[in-house]
């Protein structure tokens, strides 16, 4: 038996909108720790890891570990039927091939049940070790989204370089090239607008903008995004989900031929 009641149901709606472009089908894993997902895109270039901790739910019952395969477009279709202020409850019986999403209006005057068929998904689970990163950039998520969008009208790839001067996003294409530099900027009264750069050593990596743009669909979940870079590792683009967990996107770099 599984029963997870999320008062801020809009979080789940936003999570789905953030990942459904990248991943079509995925297993949601439910355990005593929380509700989680790990999935790669079809070309195995990017990986998304989601965690919604058990403590973040108003009610969290998960009698045994359960993995539920869902088509994310179908799940998004159902969650779009929930109001932004609705409480969402996810329910499943052991051994069942369906999951039920229950939507309750804040005044409790409307209750809806949407039952969705589960699917068998043979997915690979990767072990991601904790790493020390050469540079960690924290910046407003809306700013990062704007930069990725602007650069993708010029080129296909972005070079992200961190030096003590700041973080530079560069691209080039047929029509020309572009460089955007963001310097450290810690505004005490508006922490959500801060740009903070922690650099152990300078780092410069190249990534496909198509994926970066897809990651920025998570911007509505968090005012800030954290970008962790090391020369030998995929970049980690993390959006914290208010007191509940996170959504992390891992993207393998491009290298010179």
């Amino acid at each position: 038996m599984l029963e997870l009641r999320l008062v801020q149901g809009s979080l789940l709606k936003k999570v789905l909108e953030a990942i459904r472009e990248l991943v079509t089908d995925a297993n949601f894993d439910c355990s005593g720790t929380g509700f989680s997902l790990q999935a790669m895109d079809s070309s195995h270039v990017a990986l998304v890891a989601l965690l919604l901790r058990a403590e973040g739910f108003e009610h969290y019952r998960c009698d045994r570990n359960l993995s539920m395969g869902m088509n994310l477009n179908n799940m998004a279709k159902m969650l779009r039927c929930a109001g932004n202020d609705d409480i969402i409850t996810i329910k499943a019986d052991d051994g069942s091939d369906t999951v039920t999403f229950m939507f309750e209006s804040p005044k409790q005057d409307k209750i809806a049940d949407f039952e969705m068929k589960l699917m068998d998904i043979d997915s690979e689970h990767l072990g991601i070790p904790d790493s020390e990163y050469q540079a960690i950039v924290r910046m407003p998520s809306a700013e990062f989204m704007r930069i990725c969008k602007d650069l993708s009208s010029i080129g296909d790839t972005v070079i992200i370089s961190v030096t003590k001067e700041g973080v530079k996003f560069s691209t080039s294409g047929e029509i020309g090239s572009a460089n955007i530099v963001c310097r450290q900027n810690q505004t005490v009264d508006k922490p959500e607008e801060a740009t903070v750069i922690e650099m152990q050593e300078p780092v410069s990596l190249t990534f496909a903008l198509r994926y970066m743009n897809s990651f920025t669909k998570a911007s509505s979940l968090s005012d800030q995004v954290t970008i962790s870079l090391s020369s030998e590792l995929p970049v980690v683009v993390e959006y914290k989900i208010a007191e509940m967990g996170y959504i992390r996107f891992y993207l393998a770099p491009k290298i010179e031929e």
Binding site: V45, A46, E124, L126, I128, T157, P234
Partner: peptide, 14 residues
């Protein structure tokens, strides 16, 4: 431009 690496080149299956 450049060769796109795969995420599985960095992280192994559990």
């Amino acid at each position: 431009s450049g060769v796109q690496l795969s995420i599985t080149e960095f992280y192994r299956s559990k």
